[in-house]
Amino acid sequence: MAEQSKVTFIITRQDGPDAAPYEETFEIPYRQNMNVISALMEIRKNPVNSKGEQTTPVMWDMNCLEEVCGACSMVINGTARQSCAALVDQLEQPIRLEPMSTFPIVRDLIVDRERMFDALKQVKAWIPIDGTYDLGPGPRMPENKRQWAYELSKCMTCGVCLEACPNVNDSSNFIGPAAISQARLFNAHPTGEMNASERLNGLMEAGGIDGCGNSQNCVQVCPKGIPLTTSIAAMNRATNIQAFKNFFGSDTAL
């Protein structure tokens, strides 16, 4: 591979949200230790396809370039992953790039992940502490709990788990695994726990946790190794208990 002077990319492109997708092939000069993003930058510098025709530069999304922001996710050789962490030397050629098909396509490889942020709103994945006076230090968190909660906090809303989930698609309103795990994260927090039932009720709304069919693809593909299926099962238990409290009545119902 190292001797090779050219790298071939076959990219699924789309000029706008409603335009028809098409494939375009690019051959770019090989450099050592290239990642997919540096290859896309090479195309941007000289947007000429493999037939020698001048074309528009391929568009993609990125931010951190170190696999923590989640913006650069795309389907690379059939697998959804972060393009900043995908090294050309480790990929089979020709390298195929496609946008994540679960999301609305903005242009080329850029997708709109807004549904993930809507999902976080549905489950109230934050801790409301705003007020008019200083609330003082929050309660302490047991160390063993902090350890697993830290793992959940690594989620970067990258969308890979939604892309792999068979139940996240156009004919279903399922919010996907990431937001379910985030509800668990904030319910584990000693201050966040005070609003636990609000998040559980969000999980029980339309498109919520009941959309999970246990294919468990999410936990296999998450680049952060988040135990998504454990979170889903834990939230299954918690929502069931919450549903009983809501129905039969209890002072902690709402």
Binding site: T230, A233, A234, N236, R237
Partner: peptide, 8 residues
């Protein structure tokens, strides 16, 4: 799983 019995 649905009833939250097996989690780990």
């Amino acid at each position: 799983v649905t009833w939250g019995i097996t989690q780990t």
